[in-house]
Design a protein around this nucleic acid. Sequence first.
DNA 1: CTAGTTATTAACTATATGGTTAATTATAAA
DNA 2: TTTATAATTAACCATATAGTTAATAACTAG
Lengths: 211, 211
Amino acid sequence: MQKKTRDSETTKAKIIHTSMMLFSRNGYNATTAEEISKACGVNKAMIFYYYKNKAGLYGAVLSHALESIHDEVINKDKEYLEPLEDLEIFIKTYALYCEKHPYLPALLLRELSNSGAYLPDVMFDSMRKLFALLSKILKEGERQKLFSNVEPMIIHFMIVGTINLFITTKPLREKSSKIEDKIDTCCDCDMEYVADYIFNKVKLMLGVKPT
Amino acid sequence: MQKKTRDSETTKAKIIHTSMMLFSRNGYNATTAEEISKACGVNKAMIFYYYKNKAGLYGAVLSHALESIHDEVINKDKEYLEPLEDLEIFIKTYALYCEKHPYLPALLLRELSNSGAYLPDVMFDSMRKLFALLSKILKEGERQKLFSNVEPMIIHFMIVGTINLFITTKPLREKSSKIEDKIDTCCDCDMEYVADYIFNKVKLMLGVKPT
DNA sequence: CTAGTTATTAACTATATGGTTAATTATAAA
DNA sequence: TTTATAATTAACCATATAGTTAATAACTAG
């Protein structure tokens, strides 16, 4: 195939991926249009040509980062399995999703940290749907007397918050472990191990009887 | 007493408190010197007069937000109590501290969300010390066979992350509960209840036998 | 081959904002 | 009262950066 000298899809994709990286690494304001354009070798004006303005680009980045989370996490939970199975799928799928899309946790935490102000609708909806799903699983488990003393919002923070922090703090934990090697910051833990650990702890929290 | 028309301490305090509010609400870049000065009725040049530049101001804000966390959380943990008591003190003191200093969680999450880049030393040290303390408590509990299957870093995220998220998401949770009242976002939960809930769940997680 | 459309570019503009400066006013010490 | 010092101010500057524009190059349909 012949190499095209211009291709809108490629250009748009370059812009989105580079922006996602920079926004999640440095935040919205600290990321400049010129920085993006230089990093992906695309003329600055293309950003405004395709995304109208910086806010439009940011919205597109968020949509892109979130677009598959429903397919992966929500649709994977086929309705009305065992609550315990559902819970396991929820935790592990979310964890693996975040690992595959490592920009998401940082974007999420950053948005949450100024939720008082403006949170993009696409992100708000996505978070609400995710919580609604977990909430349903937990309530069903409670109804079946499998889970006890459930406070869904707090459980949700324990799961999602822990996974997000685990990913975003990775460089910090590595730095810390170099300074003081007596303290284990779980540097070598892989995501699968962490997800499994969380699942087991949540089971204990919910008073699930060992089978 | 006669009202002073000028007082450096008052001026500095005004700047710090207003900045802390604005930085935590809108982030570093999105907060302008003029915005701060107008919000606290102090001339803009005073900011640079007392804090040299914006980064200096931010550093002072962080120091101020963190300065008492050691007294409150770390010193309150008198050495070598029962691990379980220590754990309870750790969780509850941290929770109450965050409630009393509601700007801290947002500043923390924001810094964490771009930890890859630059994290101020004062914050890095504070986080490390906090984690070191919890780590010690957990290890001691494990040694005494009170706690089992401990992964300190993950437990730490579960505690601290949950508290931080609970505080920063307050406005979001209220907004969500208005939209869909079927889902309980723990809007009316007070911090004491949440801290107690977390403590009980962590006990279960650590396999603490009910007394 | 041509004409119209789409993608790309470099150069430009307007504005917001971090930071400076030099003058001024209040305060406290002498 | 005088003087030195610390606090405060308004006006200013330099620069970074979001966004524009007008020209141009590449592709496509006819």
